Simulated assay, not measured.
Amino acid sequence: MEGGVEVFGFWPSPFSLRVELALKLKGIQYQYVEEDVLNQKSDLLVKYNPIYKKVPVLVHHGKPISESLVILEYIEETWKHSPILPQDCHEKALARFWAAYIDGKVVSALGKVCGSKGEVIEEAVEEAKEALEPLEKELKSNKFFGGEKIGFLDIVGILIAFWIPASEEALGIEMLTAHKFPNLIQWIEELANDNVVKELIPKKDDLVTHMKTVLGKN
């Protein structure tokens, strides 16, 4: 797709889905390239992302950009219509802060849950809940983190909305309870009912099966 937009992704990856969601919300046409990151990465992926050799990679006019948060910023700056970041400087900074929090604290906690066994997993689940609590408070009773429409932080938080529930089922655990996280649960329902999100999100059963396979739970 010379001169256009390509997205190199992996269907179970919430990070590559972030990129697709941002492009879809802005109405940007792109070509999606599925990568078999678990078995055989393509030569193109390694060429475009030689440092990390992982998805997602966005290629625009032949120039590659990697790392999902960096790509989201690039998309926002390149196609300024239908902004996903707040226009107020302070609110924009807060969105970036919470995005970094999700990719740091929450992703790390979720990784620990998925990598734990036996009694240790209970401690990891509690740690994950603690990591989610500030986001529950930040969301308050808003429809989305971005207000009335999906924004930057909602896109970044997509892994919380759909990958945590799939992890719960795959591992037989409970993290996002309605009693403890009513705002996040309502937010997940709002996301799940969005037409653009519905078009992109993998089926939960497929995600659960994939996670069980990767975690050796099958």
Score class of each variant (00 low, 15 high):
L132T: 09
P14K: 03
A166E: 10
Y48A: 00
G104F: 09
A22S: 10
I155T: 02
H61S: 12
D36P: 01
I51K: 05
T78W: 11
L184G: 04
N49V: 06
E76D: 14
V106L: 06
K54T: 12
K149M: 09
L110F: 11
A161W: 07
S66V: 01
N49L: 07
E20P: 00
A109C: 09
E123S: 13
V107T: 13
L132E: 10
E2P: 05
A109Y: 09
E119G: 00
E35W: 08
I75H: 00
L58R: 04
H61I: 00
S82W: 00
I185Q: 13
K47C: 04
V196A: 05
E148R: 02
G3F: 09
D43S: 15
K112Q: 14
G157A: 13
W163S: 05
G151N: 06
E91D: 15
E199A: 06
F152E: 01
V57G: 02
L215V: 12
D205K: 14
F8G: 00
I201M: 12
L44W: 08
N193G: 06
E127P: 04
D205N: 06
K198P: 06
P134T: 06
L184D: 01
E189W: 07
A93V: 10
Y101W: 08
G104W: 11
F144K: 06
D154A: 00
V59T: 08
V46T: 14
C89K: 14
K53G: 04
G157T: 01
S16G: 14
L17F: 03
E67M: 00
K92P: 08
A128Y: 08
N193M: 09
I160Q: 01
G104V: 05
V57R: 02
V5A: 06
L215S: 12
E199N: 10
L139G: 05
V19D: 07
A109E: 09
K24R: 14
W11C: 09
G151R: 05
L207H: 11
Q29M: 10
D103S: 02
L94F: 13
E77P: 12
E130A: 15
M1T: 13
N39G: 01
D194P: 09
E199L: 08
H179N: 13
Y48W: 04
P182V: 03
A100R: 15
